[in-house]
């Protein structure tokens, strides 16, 4: 049973993965969206194909078959930049050492194949008090703090 980690909280609480929603593949969704509100993106999928449908989607699951394939980070971030407000979930070969970057790129949740150590997960998410870049999580980058621009 895969756990679903909530990256929005520094505590990274986890709960069993909800079984009700089965995301469609991008190809299936684009061919026949129907009433679907959940889509799954593979690394090679073009996330921009979802932009016309963002308002109706509640869940976009981004697959990481191997953690070293970082295409999902770009998929997530550009969806957020385009205004997608639903849940962004990272699934697959997601290790605790990737959680912080996933959060910064706009992921809300992580559904890793292998169990994560909750204490290490929490430490990973809270280790860096500040960030150098503006990204999809809305954190104030260091250059803005230096300029006295909080917010």
């Amino acid at each position: 049973m895969t756990d679903l980690f909530d990256l929005r909280s520094a505590e990274a609480p986890s709960a069993p993965l909800p079984a009700d929603v089965k995301p469609l593949s991008l190809e299936a969704f684009l061919a026949a969206p129907g009433n679907a509100t959940a889509v799954r993106l593979e690394p090679g999928d073009d996330a921009r194909a979802l932009l016309p449908h963002c308002d109706r989607l509640a869940l976009v699951e981004v697959s990481f078959p191997v953690f070293g394939d970082g295409r999902g980070y770009s998929s997530a971030r550009l969806l957020r930049e385009a205004g997608y407000r639903g849940e962004l979930r990272a699934s697959g070969d997601v290790l605790v050492d990737q959680l912080a970057a996933l959060r910064r790129c706009g992921f809300d949740t992580a559904a890793p194949d292998a169990p994560l150590d909750a204490a290490v997960a929490k430490a990973s998410l809270t280790r860096f008090a500040d960030v150098y870049q503006a990204a999809a999580d809305g954190r104030t980058p260091i250059w803005a703090r230096r300029a006295g621009k909080e917010g």
Binding site: G70, A101, R104, W143
Partner: peptide, 13 residues
Amino acid sequence: RQWSSFHPEFTYL
């Protein structure tokens, strides 16, 4: 250097 350090989108190029 600062922009590229721990850049969350470009950590697994």
